[in-house]
Design a protein around this nucleic acid. Structure first.
Lengths: 134, 134
DNA sequence: GCGTAACGTCACCTTGAGGTAACCGCCATG
DNA sequence: CATGGCGGTTACCTCAAGGTGACGTTACGC
């Protein structure tokens, strides 16, 4: 197991080696922009524990509108993270599940969520301090 | 070293245990919304390799507007990820550096970037396939 | 005096993400 | 007959993110 510092150093080095990552056509930006909308991450994590049907997701994520659920699922499907399967029942039911590619993003998401929940108190503290200073 | 599957399973389990993460006041969402704007991640990674001055950052990230650089740096400072130091030179120069909290986010970011650059071809492939199918 | 570089602020405008609500066909149930 | 659940689509509206460009202050070099 490496220290966090060593791991960070490796990532920083890779980032710097990737030359023009900061400018216009950075490929990482393209993917990250897609992932960083309001619902994508939430839906991926929801589907992480198994396939779901449309209205099942709606019930689990109550504050998403029908439109955004449809749209976000389409986008995730387009990117190959989610597979859509229509069953020929009456009425037809639709199942959404993560593809292997979709499952592979759970790990990096997990690290980010872990960081977020672990450091939330520190961030809120910093915000208060900053706001009272101003 | 665990397999990716095992790691993912742990993250999924934690996510499910965190009960009301999906609804309204989810603390993770609060932090992630901040991080997922257009420039935050890019600036953090830029500052990862050392402190920078204002216009130095502008030159390294040429497509950011002055306004957004100021604003994003302020937000990062407010969240305690970036420290701002004013030097009493003439004219005054300003240095931005990551705080320890800011440095700690490099690792989760790194995993995400690694995933993004590794899977970009697959995503583009999926997009093409999806678009031609429609 | 003039330009330039330092680090911003302010006013304005455009764009698009996302919410709301209505509507669709189909089928089961009361 | 009517209601409700299924899985959407469409039109409309709002709000905030982000870009542009002007302005400001100080100090240095030409």
């Amino acid at each position: 197991m490496q220290t966090a510092e060593a791991t960070a150093a490796i990532f920083v080095q890779r980032w710097n080696e990737a030359a023009d990552l900061a400018v216009g056509t950075c490929p990482v930006r393209g993917v990250l922009d897609r992932i960083s909308d309001k619902w994508s991450m939430l839906l991926v994590m929801t589907l992480a524990s198994g396939p779901r049907r449309f209205n099942q997701i709606r019930r689990e994520v109550p504050d998403i509108s029908q439109k955004m659920l449809t749209q976000t699922l389409r986008d995730l499907q387009r990117d190959g993270l989610v597979a859509r399967r229509v069953f020929d029942t009456k009425p037809p039911s639709v199942e959404y599940r993560l593809t292997p590619l979709g499952q592979s993003i759970i790990v990096p998401f997990g690290y980010l969520i872990e960081w977020a929940s672990g450091n939330l108190p520190r961030i809120e503290e910093a915000r208060e301090e900053f706001d009272t200073a101003a």
